[in-house]
Design a protein around this nucleic acid. Sequence first.
DNA 1: TTGTTTTTCAACAATGATTGTTGACAACGG
DNA 2: CCGTTGTCAACAATCATTGTTGAAAAACAA
Lengths: 166, 166
Amino acid sequence: MKTAEELTELFRSSGRKVTAQRQCIFRVLQGDGTHPSAEAVHAVVSREMETISLKTVYQTLYDLAELGEIASLDVGTGMTRFDPNVDDRHHHLVCRRCGSVRDLVAAFPELRIPEGADLGFEVGSAEIVFRGLCPECRAPVPGDRAGMRSSPRTSSTSTSTSTSTR
Amino acid sequence: MKTAEELTELFRSSGRKVTAQRQCIFRVLQGDGTHPSAEAVHAVVSREMETISLKTVYQTLYDLAELGEIASLDVGTGMTRFDPNVDDRHHHLVCRRCGSVRDLVAAFPELRIPEGADLGFEVGSAEIVFRGLCPECRAPVPGDRAGMRSSPRTSSTSTSTSTSTR
DNA sequence: TTGTTTTTCAACAATGATTGTTGACAACGG
DNA sequence: CCGTTGTCAACAATCATTGTTGAAAAACAA
């Protein structure tokens, strides 16, 4: 993802207008490695701009995704997650308890659909999701620190695909 | 996935009751390779049982998932999809236009998280989603045949992860 | 078979995430 | 500075999914 200044440029040159709320969102996303949801971004931005609406955040995030500056991913936590890291090709570790998402860089950099399995499907991209427990959720943390985002509500989804855990 | 009769057995022995609507759902799922959503299953079952509620379908599907007889997957089409094929370890091809899901068996049967990348994450399962265009959506089919399930409404999600197509 | 207990059913309302609508307003170009 | 045009915030609506509840049906025992 580019810097806030470069994004301002990019937005202008792509016919979009640049507003204070958008720049605020740019700044918030800078170096955010938590793969926030739209709501999470909104929560942070709201501290700076009281009245910004969730709709605006969604709009800007999707604009950025359209420009290829961030990636929108659906990893089964119930909400679309946004990833500012689009420069490194990578995959994701998803905690099945707290829903946190972590990048897994330098693994399977070139995942190709195997020859012979081509069924007429024109493959554009391949993504791997590793499901498991993040370090925080593995240990029975007594004093629960911040970092656990959404309560394990959405655990109904993303139950299994390739059996391993059961 | 087991046969309808075996599932009846399994439901009984696991303390669940067996109803006509459940057996109907068992039958509908038998050999369904389309990875239907709950709504799609409901649509089919409804032809046989007019009054069955969507809630019942959801309940039964999640029961089956809990028993490990089907898999519930979130591949970014906006709805949870259900896969009766849990015997073959496999991954999925998802069409970014019509949202159809196809099994990709015999590819990456043993996907392991690479050594050295272990960040304290306890990995349970790994799933790969290949995104692209299905054979039907590649060709500009004039007489559009059945097979396109949901309209490309939910295309907003699942835009990109590892860049390739753009 | 008949009653008894317990689960499930269908209908209905509610939830959470996301998107459509709209009048006021701010950004950009001149 | 000013008009044009896109954006904003508030509000309501949508979609997928889940909670609630009285009625009905399944399993079990007599």
